[in-house]
Simulated scan of single mutants.
Amino acid sequence: MNFFLQGLTMGIAYDAPIGLANLFVINAALTQTRRKSFFSTLIVIIFDVALAFSCFFGIGAVMKKFEWLQLAILLIGSLIVIYMGINLLRSQTTDISAEATPEMTIFKTITSAFVVIWFNPQAIIDGSMMLGAFQVTLPTYSYPVFIAGVGIASALWFIVLNAVVTKFKDKFNAKVLRIINLICGVIIILYGGKLLFNFITLLIH
């Protein structure tokens, strides 16, 4: 139980900081129907847990070893993230009712969530340092229990985040939603710009 609780708290610490995944879940809860936003949240959870598992077992070390792989993910990821932010800025939502919810296909939801979670090499490396370093302190037999705690923490965090935003979204009018979209869009573009800057820096060096 001790190892499970360690994984649970580590998982919360891993997901809690505001990042692209949290912004994705918040925006889905605000702009989609309850059912669609919950589906989007489940997809984020699946990719996030998969990333946590990969970080725990050393994908960050692989990226550090193969610089070309890090460069490729940085370039592609930065451009896609910036594109997502621009699309959010351009959205002209004037009604936040279920009937006015923008159409989000299953394919688009899955690909967008995949990009948000997996095309941020800095997050992969940071996650590897956090989870990978913790792995060294654990006995081998505790790995399944610890990583299960991390996975459950991810599911709890995003489900609760989605539920809270969904519950209170009716209090937001179209103008407030537009402002939130603009803020989220700017933050996402800044994330993408940071990734692009990191790519240029690595390329020069």
Results as ranks from 00 to 15, higher is better:
1 M>T: 11
2 N>Q: 13
3 F>T: 12
6 Q>L: 14
7 G>S: 00
7 G>N: 00
8 L>G: 00
10 M>R: 10
11 G>Q: 05
11 G>I: 08
13 A>R: 01
15 D>H: 09
19 G>A: 14
19 G>P: 03
19 G>V: 14
20 L>W: 08
22 N>I: 06
23 L>T: 12
25 V>G: 02
27 N>S: 13
28 A>V: 08
29 A>W: 01
33 T>H: 00
35 R>S: 06
41 T>H: 04
41 T>I: 07
41 T>P: 03
41 T>F: 09
42 L>F: 13
42 L>V: 11
51 L>T: 05
56 F>A: 06
57 F>K: 00
58 G>Q: 02
60 G>S: 03
60 G>M: 02
60 G>Y: 00
60 G>P: 03
61 A>F: 09
62 V>G: 01
63 M>N: 05
64 K>C: 04
65 K>L: 06
65 K>P: 01
65 K>Q: 05
66 F>K: 02
66 F>R: 02
67 E>A: 13
69 L>N: 02
76 I>S: 03
80 I>R: 10
80 I>Q: 09
81 V>T: 12
84 M>Y: 15
87 N>I: 13
89 L>A: 05
91 S>H: 12
92 Q>A: 14
96 I>L: 15
97 S>H: 05
97 S>R: 06
98 A>L: 11
99 E>A: 12
100 A>W: 01
100 A>K: 05
101 T>C: 14
102 P>T: 09
108 K>L: 11
111 T>C: 12
113 A>W: 03
113 A>P: 07
115 V>N: 03
116 V>A: 10
119 F>L: 15
119 F>D: 04
119 F>E: 04
120 N>Y: 11
121 P>M: 11
125 I>D: 04
125 I>N: 07
130 M>V: 08
131 L>G: 07
135 Q>P: 08
138 L>E: 07
143 Y>K: 08
143 Y>Q: 07
144 P>E: 02
147 I>G: 04
148 A>L: 15
152 I>Y: 02
152 I>C: 04
152 I>G: 02
152 I>E: 03
153 A>D: 03
155 A>N: 00
157 W>S: 01
157 W>L: 04
159 I>H: 03
160 V>E: 01
160 V>Q: 01
160 V>N: 01
166 T>L: 11
168 F>H: 02
168 F>Q: 02
172 F>N: 06
173 N>P: 05
173 N>G: 04
180 I>F: 12
180 I>N: 02
181 N>I: 11
183 I>G: 05
186 V>P: 03
190 L>W: 12
192 G>T: 06
193 G>V: 04
194 K>T: 13
194 K>C: 09
194 K>S: 14
195 L>Y: 09
198 N>A: 15
202 L>C: 08
205 H>E: 12
